[in-house]
Computed example of a mutant assay.
Amino acid sequence: MTAQLKIKKNEGILAQAYYEEVARKTLGILWHQKPLIIGILLLALSAASITLVLIGPRYSSQAMIQLNFIRDEPATGVKTQSIATVDAVALVDSVARAIRSPTTASAAVARLGLDKDPDFARESTMWRVLLGTRAALGMKAATPTPRDLAANRLMRMVTVTNPPRSYLISVAVTASDPEQATTLANTVALEYLRARMLQQLSDSQAAAERELNQLSSIYGVRHPSYALARTRLETLQNRLIALRNAPDDDAASLVTGQSFVAAESTFIPSGPSITLILGLTAGAALGVGICLALWLTPRKQTRDKVAIVGGCAGQNVRV
């Protein structure tokens, strides 16, 4: 029993000595190959720095849409009435989906004329190569319009979020220009609200037409109630025509159940994170440099090198 314990103890000592020797020789190899490792590190950091300079700072701006589930209606006094007929969470989610929809993005593109902006209305290089290849092979491919391209680019720039347990929806845009980010965020939110206002006016117009028909059948066209309803219907029709023909930012404050908080420009960059990018680059470069240095070690240091490189490559090393 004592002999077995001594054998196991000796095996442990030998294994420890072996790995200490491997570690010592590994450090010696790395120290000998330090110019290679430092060169790879400096090259990677230089490439990352040039990339950061080319990308430039990014600025974020966000507009807010607050959902209110009550409204005030004039009667003998002012009364408060709930306007939510579905689950509030589902309603918030549907609003967020409508904001990030292609319809809203297309309306924002038309309002700002982004389909004439070459930064928005252009195809990616990979997509152009794909279309060119299909054309060379005689295959048909649908060509997107400048408006479609601009809307797709805008949708990628817009982020719509809803904080948990709140009825607040954030419409955020990140761009290289803080003023452009603010304009895009406000325009997307306002175009959604304009679409909601058009829908509400259309519903009010349909209700006014039904009321007018009822008054006509009951009182006739000469009754004051009919004349008042007719005037109200004409007013709604004029508002609909005006809102369809020309965007009206003031209409955002008239949408029932929703309020708008405009985005403001901020000149503090939101990204990219220089420290994080350079740190990850340095870590990856050191890893590549160490593995490459071990692979390039002369074969005369075979056993130790094979053990080290095997571990670097994810292989099992046997003692």
Rank of each mutant, 00 (worst) to 15 (best):
I241W: 10
L43Y: 07
P224K: 05
P164W: 00
Q62A: 14
S94F: 03
G138S: 06
T103N: 09
R134C: 06
V92S: 09
A172H: 02
V306P: 01
R165Y: 08
L190T: 01
I29E: 04
G56V: 06
A47Q: 09
S273Q: 11
R230Q: 15
H223T: 04
S106P: 02
A108F: 01
N10S: 10
I70D: 12
I277A: 03
Y192T: 03
A252H: 02
L27P: 05
R303G: 12
S46Y: 09
A75P: 03
V309H: 02
A262S: 13
G310D: 07
P35A: 10
A47H: 07
A63W: 01
A175N: 09
A110I: 01
T231F: 08
T161G: 08
G39H: 06
Q214F: 12
A150K: 00
L131A: 13
T161S: 15
L212D: 04
V129A: 15
Y59S: 05
T182N: 02
A181Q: 03
G132F: 06
L233W: 05
L236C: 08
T187S: 05
Y19Q: 10
A75V: 12
H223W: 03
D177Q: 09
E123Y: 01
T80G: 05
S202G: 14
L42P: 01
I241H: 13
E209P: 03
V22T: 07
V92R: 06
G287F: 15
V129C: 00
T266L: 07
K79H: 12
A189W: 05
P118E: 07
N186V: 06
A284V: 10
G289V: 01
T104V: 14
L36Y: 05
D87M: 07
L43P: 02
S166C: 07
D249K: 11
R147W: 02
S166M: 07
A246G: 09
A195F: 01
V288R: 05
L236G: 04
S101W: 05
T125A: 14
G77D: 14
F267R: 15
Y18R: 12
T183C: 02
A17Q: 12
L131N: 08
I169Y: 01
G12V: 10
L112A: 01
A121F: 06
M197F: 04
A47S: 14
G287I: 13
A175D: 14
Q33D: 10
Q200I: 04
N162Q: 13
V221E: 14
L45H: 00
K9T: 11
R165W: 00
S202D: 14
R156S: 14
A63I: 04
A151I: 04
P35Y: 10
V109P: 04
A3D: 14
L193G: 00
N152Y: 07
P146D: 09
L254Q: 15
E123C: 00
R147Y: 06
